[in-house]
Design a protein around this nucleic acid. Structure first.
Lengths: 354, 354
DNA sequence: CTTAGCACTCTTACTTCCTGAGTGCTAAAG
DNA sequence: CTTTAGCACTCAGGAAGTAAGAGTGCTAAG
């Protein structure tokens, strides 16, 4: 059943006032807020209806009304106006996004921090656990007679390196040989396929090389493992104390400790994000996780490239400024997608304008 | 003026009981706790003396006694017994320390998290801003015709890399040339010495290479900049809510937001750590930062190698279990020092036993 | 359908009162 | 001079009671 225009106007006014002040809204105040030229009694009647239908709630008999999750949902779906970011805000986001070095994990962590700071809510950022990755290439670079750098590249074009120091000398030709060996024996293999047996065989072929093969391959395995694992970054958990709904330390603590459990968070939030690809809003009980039943989550997904996706979002009380948060989040998510999609260009090449 | 044995015994009992319970300690309870065979009246006299001399405080006239910062200081200096970690605890620490990949920043971040989890206090870990670093070597590795990896190594033996994609083709010989050029023109230079002018000259010598020189050198500069900057990692800020002194949300919030200001934290804590090289305890007003005047900080420093140092520590109420925290921290710091000092050995090489 | 009026409800803040823990002091005992 | 018992005193914290104010629901009239 569709609500009348007037009811919607009132509901919207209640939600927006409550989001601002965190105080239940009364019929008198609504006369002004909703911009209606009717008396408070009329509004009271409407409020009673809205409450009846489950869009509003009363903390107690003689308090004003507060939006219910259902009320917020209607607001978010139909009543909320798209918020446009100010030039200043977009600039701030762009700067922050481009400033830092482009290591995947750092950028994402940074983006999470930024979002938290931007919205004053705790934020999180996840990367979806990748598909099975394989090694694409090894390089060994001699540093001095007793140390070398192993560079490992995966088929997702991520590159990691590590410095190895050895108790004995090593020559350039030796290293060349090892490189060739590594590249023939281990390229194209997934983590599972890098068996100890395979390593033994290669080790044997390499002759006496102090077990260098295993050393480098173990490193490669660590790299694959780390990349295949989905990562979770959280930031600004302390922001929940900013909001009056968490004046109760017990509540705040519960939410905080939930936020620091990376695994459950990833599980609870990756799922809803995968369905849609735009901004997603989960209000109170719409969350699957019990711990989030009276909080809301706003999330947006971004492309990491190579078909992989990540999710970035914030957590807060159901009384959340959805319009603002959603706008900021989706802007950041877009920024991230662009950042990862766009190849590194030589300076001077003009970037595409929006 | 030296305190009598009995006074010390009483002071110690007060401190330890208060650390446990967070409740002011009364004369009656102390009869048992201090293990003295005197009446409560006698203890009251002693307590009065200790209060007079500033070792104890009374929250109000009719409450028990609580240690003052001066009291904690005496306790820490003279009365506290060195805590030994259980085998289980040392094992747990060792495992956590060795599990993760050895990228400097990750290890340190991880160590901070671990300490926080281990102690139930917020923890932080800093790396001292390094001396001026220089580039030691460049390597360029061709990936495919339109992309290559730049590997940059500093004189502190840190290696970073980045994948570059280009809008045009690139050949192996070209890359060789660039590598040589980079290695002759920019090796041994500090950040300041990598001037735009120098880059222009090199760029010119390289002929038409799409500005690749600048691209790679800019990357190198980012690397140097990042490494020279001192880094701050904090973890487990939410743990402060575990402690009754922060039941007041306002207080908790103040401390939390202070902890998330990386810069001030680094400034306030690096200083004291540099002086001594063992575990250091700063009690309440001994902290220079105003925000920490009623908290205590325990910190330990570790060697990153190459003469550089870092600091790891925890923050908590003055009522902190100094003995336990100090023991754990110094064990972790030692572990870190060993980790960084010790070269990567081939598997099978026996590690030194303790 | 709207509005004014009014009784009613319930929270919040502010008293007041009471209890119990712990003290400091005094005077006697070792 | 130190220790102890006894006792009056202080003060925080909880319980109970009260008053004020906000906002409602209902009724009856416009």
């Amino acid at each position: 059943m569709e609500l009348s225009e007037r009811k919607k106007k009132i509901l919207r006014a209640v939600v927006e006032s409550y989001i601002q002040t965190a105080e239940p809204v009364g019929s008198k105040a609504l006369m002004e807020l909703a911009g209606l030229k009717v008396s408070s009694a009329t509004i009271r009647n409407e409020l009673a209806d809205l409450t009846e239908q489950g869009y509003l709630e009363q903390p107690h008999t003689s308090a004003g009304r507060v939006p219910s999750p259902k009320g917020y949902r209607l607001y978010v779906n139909e009543l909320m106006e798209e918020q446009r970011l100010s030039l200043e805000e977009t600039k701030q986001i762009n700067d922050a996004l481009h400033l830092k070095m482009r290591e995947l994990d750092k950028v994402i962590d940074q983006a999470g921090r930024m979002v938290s700071q931007l919205t004053n809510y705790p934020a999180f950022a996840l990367t979806e656990g990748a598909r099975r990755l394989t090694i694409k290439r090894f390089d060994l670079i001699l540093v001095d007679s007793a140390s070398f750098i192993a560079v490992v590249m995966t088929d997702s074009s991520v590159v990691k390196n590590k410095l190895f120091r050895l108790p004995a000398d090593l020559s350039e030709p030796q290293l060349q040989l090892l490189t060739t060996l590594l590249n023939t024996a281990f390229v194209g293999k997934t983590l599972d396929q890098l068996t100890p047996e395979l390593m033994r065989v290669a080790e044997h072929a390499a002759g006496n090389s102090y077990g260098l093969i295993s050393l480098v391959v173990s490193f490669a395995m660590e790299v694959l493992d780390e990349l295949e694992r989905s990562a979770v970054y959280t930031a600004g958990a302390s922001h929940i104390l900013d909001h009056p709904e968490y004046q109760d330390v017990g509540k705040a603590q519960k939410l905080m400790s939930y936020l620091s459990e990376d695994r459950s968070l990833a599980q609870a939030l990756a799922l809803p994000a995968l369905e849609g690809d735009d901004t997603k809003i989960l209000i109170g009980p719409e969350n699957v996780a019990d711990e989030l039943k009276d909080t809301s989550v706003v999330l947006a997904s971004y492309d990491i490239g190579d078909g992989m996706k990540g999710v970035i979002g914030v957590v807060g009380p159901t009384r959340m400024d959805y319009a603002k948060v959603a706008a900021k989040l989706s802007y950041v998510a877009d920024g991230l997608s662009k950042l990862f999609g766009q190849p590194e260009l030589p300076p001077g090449t003009p970037e595409k304008e929006e």
